[in-house]
Amino acid sequence: MDPIIILHAGLATGTVLLFATIGELITERAGILNLGLEGMMLIGAMAGFSTSLATNNPWLGLVVAMLAGGALSMAHGLVTIHFQADQVVSGLSLTFLGTGIAMVFGEGLTGQNPPTIPVIDIPGLASIPWVGPVFFENHSVLVYVGYLLIPAAWYFIHKTRPGMHLRAIGEKPEAADTMGVNVYRLRYFYVFVGGCLAGLAGATISLAVSPGWYSVQTTSGQGWIAIGLVIFAQWDPLRAAVGSYLFGALRRGILDLQGPPTLFGLTNPLYVNSNWGFFLQMTPYILTILALVLGARAAAKKRIGAPAALGVPYIRGERGL
């Protein structure tokens, strides 16, 4: 129960949620709700894992994982952007589809050991007391990529011209269209970006954080937690990072609580009867709901909400609201 170990491991586990949450956040900022996160993550986890196995190159695995997640997301893009299908149902079917395809192609991958993404220290920063051992030592390269993604996503969304277009097509697509922004093309693009990041999140599990392919257990519902975190984060990358790492540490802390025979000098009930662990395992799911309740209250107070056109298909020339 060393807090440094839990925080350290929490950052690694949280990186999975971070990639998925920021990807979904960007997609939703463009006005498209993609509930297929779990399916895209599983496809990414499977594709990355099997590519690394076949080529002995985990980096190529990451690329393939991102392309696989992105490719699957394009199915959602086509159906929701051009066919104007219901985004909720399309996202759900994407989950089925991704899970099924990942299971079919992942047959026989369990138990294999392909090369994984290397673990490194950041020279200099790692020697800072307390901060170094938690943030900059003995982490997968992907964890550091995650650190960079947070400010990059924030800066892109809030401070750049393409970021302004992204927000515009999610808030008022008809106005963006009038300004000469190609709403359809940009929406496809950001659905693809979200898919790539979801695929990366999946590969982060199978090639870095807990290497291996365990069929549907590989993601065990983290895609859905990420969708909850987007709402909790109020579509802001900084808040998304806080939520992701918090949940990562929580998932990790739950595992660690079941190990030691004594906790804080008392007998550990989880050690005596491991069945109590079932209640502990419920906490991330219950906390996701609680986070939504808190997020909803804060958002109501500050009048922040979802992007105005989220989930609404844009039909050019047919109506302007």
């Binding site: 199915a75 159906v79 066919f83 104007q84 149902v89 759900l92 079917s93 994407l94 299971m103 079919v104």
Partner: peptide, 26 residues
Amino acid sequence: IQPSGLAMMLQGFILFMIISSDVLLR
């Protein structure tokens, strides 16, 4: 049936085709 995900994948494709085909109704 092996592979075990086949039925799941089939369900996914069915749902996907259904919602895609809805565009033909409109």
